[in-house]
Design a protein around this nucleic acid. Structure first.
Lengths: 146, 146
DNA sequence: GTGAGATTTAGAACTATTCCAAATAGAACT
DNA sequence: AGTTCTATTTGGAATAGTTCTAAATCTCAC
């Protein structure tokens, strides 16, 4: 895990007047380390491997903090636990109904404008979320490119 | 509430080998009567005005049944209770971050194909969900047209 | 080093939902 | 009309996920 990420974290936190704690760094690194949209519980399990004394409440706190700083995106489709995804470029989510897994799909810049264009006047969208549901027949090739 | 809706309900239920009960009809009519994406609790409150002996568990059962029959759509953005929306033509949801209200936005037929076109090969989407977040400055005119 | 404020922690509390087992209601058949 | 069989409803208990709370701990600025 390169220091650059951790530095970006400190920076963002400082911008909001918050401190870079070991817990926050670890939670963030765990999210960066395996981008499979884990739940808070899953993050908790992964973080405890390195810092066994951390509490679940702290994991929730850290995740919330990261979301506040726009370093992480909270994702909610279907009732069930919130999932977390470290925020890079704009992307949609593809939810495989067979496996339950969620994949990121890059959004070409033009499509976002196209989608926003359907809004009638009076609606001012700050963000757009796109969720696909269906089946993914992913090749090994595709998975390797992630 | 015209009989046509109730008939459509009986039909759909029968197709799935289910019965058209007073509770199911009432829950469905409540959803049709006020399309403000109510939670199960809100549906419960509205239904009880007419059938005070209904139980919350039944409301959950009925909503689940209606979702199974594709007469109603369950909507989940942000952690919090599931909301229900009687399913007409394809539409996006606009979530006003100030008021917390959710509005339906019609999706022009072409945009769905455009959005699906961004999927790499190997992804087969059965449905697409679009959620906007921002502020709605709705005029009385717009609201009247619903 | 001390004080002030931020952060973490464990556990209690809360909310939304599902589960369960018993009671009820219908439809089909006699 | 009565019986049977199954679907449905019901209230309450149980569960899952998250938030709250108050005390302990850390860290920075002085």
């Amino acid at each position: 895990m390169p220091t650059t990420h951790t530095d970006a974290l400190s920076q963002r936190l400082a911008d909001s007047g918050l401190r870079a704690t070991p817990q926050r760094e670890l939670v963030y690194n765990v999210l960066l380390g395996k981008r499979d949209h884990p739940t808070a519980d899953e993050v908790y399990a992964r973080v405890r491997a390195e810092l066994p004394t951390i509490s679940l409440a702290t994991v929730y706190n850290c995740l919330e903090t990261l979301v506040q700083c726009s370093l992480v995106r909270a994702v909610n489709f279907e009732r069930g636990p919130t999932r977390y995804c470290p925020n890079l470029h704009p992307h949609a989510h593809f939810h495989d109904e067979n496996t339950g897994e969620t994949y990121d799909v890059d959004l070409p810049p033009t499509i976002l404008a196209d989608i926003k264009a359907i809004l009638p006047s009076g609606y001012d969208a700050k963000s757009v979320e796109v969720i696909f549901r269906g089946q993914a027949h992913r090749t090994a090739e595709v998975a390797a490119g992630e």
